[in-house]
Design a protein around this nucleic acid. Sequence first.
DNA 1: TCTGTCAGGTTGTCTGACAATCTGGCAATA
DNA 2: TATTGCCAGATTGTCAGACAACCTGACAGA
Lengths: 226, 226
Amino acid sequence: MAEPPFSTLHLELSSTVDRVADELRRALFDGELESGTPLREVALAESLGVSRPTVREALGLLVAEGLATREPNRGVSVATTEAATVHDICRARWVLEGAGVRCWRQADERLRDAVRTSLVSYTGAVRNAATYQELNERHLAFHISLVGLTGSPRLVAMAESLVRELKLALAQVDRIRRNAHDQADTHTQLVMLLERGDVDGASAFLQKHLDDAETSILSALGLVTP
Amino acid sequence: MAEPPFSTLHLELSSTVDRVADELRRALFDGELESGTPLREVALAESLGVSRPTVREALGLLVAEGLATREPNRGVSVATTEAATVHDICRARWVLEGAGVRCWRQADERLRDAVRTSLVSYTGAVRNAATYQELNERHLAFHISLVGLTGSPRLVAMAESLVRELKLALAQVDRIRRNAHDQADTHTQLVMLLERGDVDGASAFLQKHLDDAETSILSALGLVTP
DNA sequence: TCTGTCAGGTTGTCTGACAATCTGGCAATA
DNA sequence: TATTGCCAGATTGTCAGACAACCTGACAGA
């Protein structure tokens, strides 16, 4: 067992561009920027005390993540969420998370454990009446851990991208309307089905849960169209 | 039926950055750049007759697409493909394409037609003994059309991203070794199963096909590890 | 009402520059 | 010999300033 000497050490080095992008993401997820707001390069550069190329590069990152959209010669602005977008995201989530659930049996034990711990992390936050932010974060982390059952980094990355888009959309609704109603029971039930080995039952359960999530998100956003 | 007057017109306006990125992609997919080759900013800028910031931005696009990797203070270089990467991509493809196949019955008729036409486009190219490039392109387009059955733009985009990575990996092997062996029959068989309504059969068939693809890609890349 | 024109603001791109960092080699040291 | 310290060249990360192209809105003229 020749363990490499310093294999546990890891240095996080962050560029200015990354820090700018982080700050912009934070502002977006905190709902400080309304959907559709143009993100002017010079204004941001002055506010953040960096140069325009740096801001420009950070904006490029956000656009690549789908959090903002760039129109030629018109700059980038905060992405707006249509009803069709929400539907698409939820459908895609169903494909990814459903694939994870179907992998439950053949999945590595550590991956199953990751699901369990993310569940208790969520239910614990519910019991402690954590902030909406915290609750939402852990709720979504649980769903990501389901995709993790596939053992595929790429599928997980895709799921995270989808969830980021949802977080941005939900950041648009003001704090009163987004009542993160207690879904701890629902998720515990899902895991119980899995533990029992009832993959098909869990799969159907998840599908219904995601369906409900779609309608609840749509109504929260006021996008219910006849 | 008040058809908007000029709704069919569409003007494609391309920025310099896009053109640079396109040229780089072309070079990558043509195998002109070996895996791991550093993409120096100044050298590219001089070769292409554009400025360094423009090249830099184009490189950012490639990195976002997974075709290149950026290491801090060390620049970006052509992405290298590990065996684990190929495995991951094929697993993710199975999730996405399998989801498409399962949607066959409830899919829109136009989406099913898209699958049929992409199949004949592929088999036609096989009959005409088209170039490897052309064959590969149509083959992958067929698989993308399977994901299209889900009707989800995001899932299709993910599938395209996966396929781009595969194309880059295959571009590394020289032209003699990559013999695109005739798979027209296999794909026709898959569609026949679907037309017959045998979704489960098609699904299992696809899984086997993707499994075979993984081993054949790995051996083509010389990445077969004991 | 429609068109032509103009001013202001913003993006797309270029040039030039500088500090921080990486690489490799070479000397000094234990 | 193996390790360390240090230096020169190369490359990236970031900045400042500039200019053309473009979009927007308003305003005058037909």
